[in-house]
């Protein structure tokens, strides 16, 4: 659990972070989002004391971070950044084992842990262990960066635009993998990004920042449905908000049970988002879709009226 209580950071005359309070529960993925210079990275770096806060208190599991030695505090938290920061003169294996080695784990345990992480992140040991960072693609390097952040099995993970430099397809894959990892590992994650789609896709709690202040925080759907002001609304996509909300809702939430009526030919998976369903309808010129499960068996149907959430009959 991470708690920021009235935290302020001043650099000389300028106030980068202005009196923010924030609570990230255990197992929660909290995304800080905002335009550049809004203080989101500064906030993240105050949590592991790469930047010291000027005022207020920051607690980790109820203990003030200033009570820890800087290094031991950081070794308790994973840290992944956009440029990966992999050590170019170390192999992938050695890079991943960095924090366990700093914590003086026995060699055998480090090796075992590195192997486990590489398997978890889809980096076959035989192929990648001996490679140097310059031999990796952007996506592979970022996977190694995430593996290194997870190496000592920290409860807390701090991620500063980790996928920002990747191409859209790799980025989406890694976002999915992170969600997947998170559902299994239940870490407390603070994730910084300026990409709203990424933020909406990942966040359990979305924190919108502007000029060093928190404008609004809550579940992504809450923010989409009731943005606090024009700034939050425009950051969330303005006119596109409907589509962004639809992307967060799954077909199974709006589908109707199977009826004696003839099933439509066009189908959509029950795990798909409403946005994908809408796209199929637009593309196929269909107002009704059959909803199918993983075995492609029909489990219900979805109409356009139902999809858009129309209140009248049905």
């Amino acid at each position: 659990m991470i708690e920021l209580i009235h935290v302020t950071k001043r650099f000389g005359e300028t106030t980068a972070v202005d009196d923010i309070s924030l609570r990230v529960e255990r197992g929660e993925l909290c995304v800080l989002v905002g335009t550049s210079g809004c203080g989101k990275s500064t906030t993240l770096r105050m949590i592991n004391r790469l930047i010291e806060h000027s005022d207020g208190e920051i607690h980790i599991d109820g203990q003030q971070i200033r009570e820890f030695r800087e290094e031991s505090l950081r070794r308790r938290m994973g840290y992944a950044i956009q440029s990966t920061g992999l050590f170019p003169h170390w192999t992938v294996e050695r890079n991943i084992g960095l924090v366990p080695r700093l914590l003086k784990w026995p060699q055998a345990r480090i090796r075992e842990r590195v192997e486990e992480l590489m398997a978890m992140l889809g980096l076959p040991m035989g192929e990648f262990a001996g490679k140097y960072p310059r031999q990796l693609s952007g996506g592979q390097a970022q996977r190694v960066g995430v593996a290194r952040a997870l190496a000592a099995d920290p409860d807390i993970l701090l991620m500063d635009e980790p996928f920002g430099a990747l191409d859209p397809i790799t980025r989406e894959t890694l976002q999915e993998e992170l969600r997947d990892l998170q559902s299994r590992l239940q870490k407390t994650i603070v994730f910084v990004t300026h990409d709203m789609d990424e933020a909406l896709r990942l966040a359990d709690r979305l924190v919108v920042m502007d000029q060093g202040r928190i404008k609004q925080q809550g579940h992504p759907l809450e923010l989409l449905r009731e943005p606090a002001d024009d700034f939050v609304e425009s950051l969330l996509g303005g006119e596109d908000r409907g589509l962004k909300e639809a992307a967060l809702l799954s077909v199974s939430e709006r589908m109707l049970p199977l009826s004696p009526r003839l099933l439509p030919r066009e189908r959509v998976s029950q795990h798909a988002s409403l946005r994908e369903a809408l796209s199929i309808m637009l593309w196929r010129h269909a107002e009704r879709l059959a909803v199918v499960d993983d075995e492609d068996m029909p489990v219900g149907e979805l109409s356009l009226r139902k999809l858009v959430g129309a209140k009248a009959h049905d």
Binding site: N48, L50, E70, E71, S72, L73, R74, R75, Y79, I81, Q82, S83, T84, G85, L86, F87, P88, H89, L98, V99, L102, G145, R148, L158
Partner: peptide, 23 residues
Amino acid sequence: IDPGVREAARGMGMTSGQLLRQV
């Protein structure tokens, strides 16, 4: 040296001596 390397090293909890000697 790439500033990201230094930032990561510090963020991972290397002491300044370890950063100097190992990186």
